[in-house]
Design a protein around this nucleic acid. Structure first.
Lengths: 153, 153
DNA sequence: GACAACTGTAACTATATTGGTTACAGACGA
DNA sequence: TCGTCTGTAACCAATATAGTTACAGTTGTC
């Protein structure tokens, strides 16, 4: 969802978007979007403005925002985690398996981060464009649509 | 938990373990263990036997079981997933973001699988041994403990 | 200055997933 | 045939995430 949101904002260039517009594209509630935007703003990926002409837009160029930035902004845990309750401390395996598994989890997390660090929002937009031109309109093949006006929905 | 279970069995060599013994090391309920063992048995990683002298043990040598085998046996999904409800089909971003994100998720999953495929249960046991010898006993530095007898608990 | 349209945020509800528990049928060795 | 296991169903509990309602605070506009 977070990648979707930032992709929308890149698509909208420097125009700022309201949480309700974003929510319509993501197909969820505006509050869910605003919650996420707060997290993204804390990580300096978007800037938001309150008030009647408020809204949010990217804080940096799309090529300067990686999926790793987004992942770290909205996810607090790695992809795997250990037993929810600690194993038996009186078993030689149980007492030490966590140490070994944490090494493995670190390796996994590094691999994931390596992939995400090499993909930017600009890349996502680039990969999106061919889909859009074939999927949406044969009438205006090269024209960017007014993506987010409320009339579209 | 699954890695813990198979590590225990590797530690126990060819001795077959009862679900209750395993549950004690993992610190959970024997039924949770049996459920997991059924999944592992379907993937031919363990063999179990019913009856009064029953129990489970590894179906292959520890060096022939990778963490990827285990992951695929017990996890049905990749590490990330898409929006729980599909985005707006009338938005050019919403309608196609899933396609692009699925490519990314495939890249991430491949990276994770690459890491897991290169670690075997034997590796885990090897990494465990130094911990055990320092952590458990200075009396019997090189001796493997009777890990799983009920008396240990 | 009053109003309308936003964001930020709290509090609550809904849903899904996972783990834990109880119970019991069936397998199997002694 | 009895005791001790596994396999499995059914249910409960805990957790995490998404969705909802409500409202205070901000800001441009008239």
């Amino acid at each position: 969802m977070a990648v979707h949101v930032l992709t929308l904002m890149a698509w909208a260039d420097d125009e700022s978007l309201k949480s309700e517009q974003v929510a319509e594209s993501v197909n969820t509630n505006p509050v869910v979007i605003r919650r996420m935007l707060c997290e993204l703003a804390e990580s300096k990926l978007v800037v938001s403005q309150t008030g009647s002409t408020g809204g949010s837009k990217l804080a940096r160029q799309p090529e300067q925002i990686t999926l790793l930035d987004i992942y770290q902004a909205v996810e607090s845990r790695g992809v795997f985690s250990l037993h929810r309750h600690p194993p038996n401390r009186h078993c030689p395996v149980g007492v030490n398996i966590g140490t070994v598994l944490n090494q493995v989890l670190d390796e996994v997390d590094s691999a994931v981060e390596g992939v995400l660090a090499n993909i930017t929002i600009k890349d996502v937009v680039s990969r999106l464009k061919p889909c859009v031109s074939t999927a949406v309109s044969k009438r205006k093949p090269a024209a960017k649509q007014p993506v987010l006006s409320a009339r579209n929905y």
